[in-house]
Simulated scan of single mutants.
Amino acid sequence: MIIETHHLTREFTVRDGLRRRTITAVDGLDLTVAEGEAVGYIGANGAGKSTTIKMLVGILVPTSGTVTTCGLRPLKDRRALTREVGVVFGQRSQLWWDLPVRESFDILGAIHHVPGPVLRTRRDELTEQLEMADFLTTPAW
C-alpha cells in the first residue's frame, strides 16, 4: 500500500477564554490507497484534510493510531519519506488578486529567492502538467 492508516486520530487542545477544550480534527481514520490508485480528498473547511496530509508526511504527530506512507513511518522515516513525496499547501489567497497569476508566481519566486531560470523551468513544467496556460495572464480573482 502507498498509504495505510488505522484509527488515525489527531486532537488539538485550544483555549476558550480561561478554559481549555479538545478539538478532534481527524477521528479514527482508516484508509488504504494502493499503488496506482488516484484519490481525491475533499471536504469542508475545518474537516481535517490538511491535518491528515500533515500526518501522512510526518509534519504532525498523530494523537493515536498508525500511519505508513510509501511503506515508511512518517515520523521515524521522515528523511527517507521526503525523497518519495512532496506536499504543497496553499490557496488562492496566496496570489495577488489583481495581478495575473504569472506575476504572482514571479513575486513569490523572488520572495523565496528562487533563481530566475529555476523559477521559469518549474513554472513551465507545472503549467503544462496542470494545463493552466490559459490562466497565466488572468488575475487570480
Rank of each mutant, 00 (worst) to 15 (best):
R83A: 15
E84C: 15
F105W: 14
G43P: 04
T22R: 05
L72C: 10
T69I: 01
E125P: 05
G43N: 03
R10L: 11
G86K: 05
V67A: 00
V33T: 01
L95G: 10
L31R: 05
F105C: 12
K49E: 12
Q91T: 14
R15I: 08
G58T: 09
P62N: 01
T13S: 11
S50T: 10
T24Y: 08
G58E: 02
R92K: 13
D30P: 00
W96F: 11
T63E: 00
R10F: 07
V26N: 06
E4R: 04
T32Q: 12
A47H: 05
D124P: 04
K49H: 09
V88M: 07
T22D: 01
S93K: 14
G48N: 06
L75R: 12
V114E: 01
F89N: 03
V57E: 15
D98S: 03
V87S: 00
C70E: 13
V118I: 10
L60F: 12
E37C: 00
P100R: 00
S104P: 10
E103G: 08
L81T: 03
R83N: 13
D16W: 10
V85K: 00
A80K: 13
E4I: 06
T82N: 14
S104T: 12
P74S: 07
R19A: 12
V14A: 03
R10N: 08
T82Q: 15
L81A: 04
G17A: 02
V14F: 06
G17Y: 04
E103L: 10
T121D: 13
R83G: 13
L75P: 09
R20F: 09
T51S: 02
K76Q: 15
P115S: 03
R79K: 14
R15A: 09
H7K: 13
V26W: 06
L119M: 09
D16F: 11
T137F: 08
R21G: 07
L136G: 03
V33S: 01
L60A: 12
P117F: 05
I23W: 04
R122H: 03
E125R: 11
I2Y: 10
S104C: 11
K54S: 09
L126R: 01
N45V: 10
H7T: 13
V118L: 10
T22C: 03
R102L: 13
R123C: 12
A133Y: 08
G58N: 07
P115V: 01
A25M: 05
R83I: 14
I2F: 14
V61W: 15
Q94S: 13
L8F: 08
A80S: 12
G116Q: 14
E37R: 02
V61C: 13
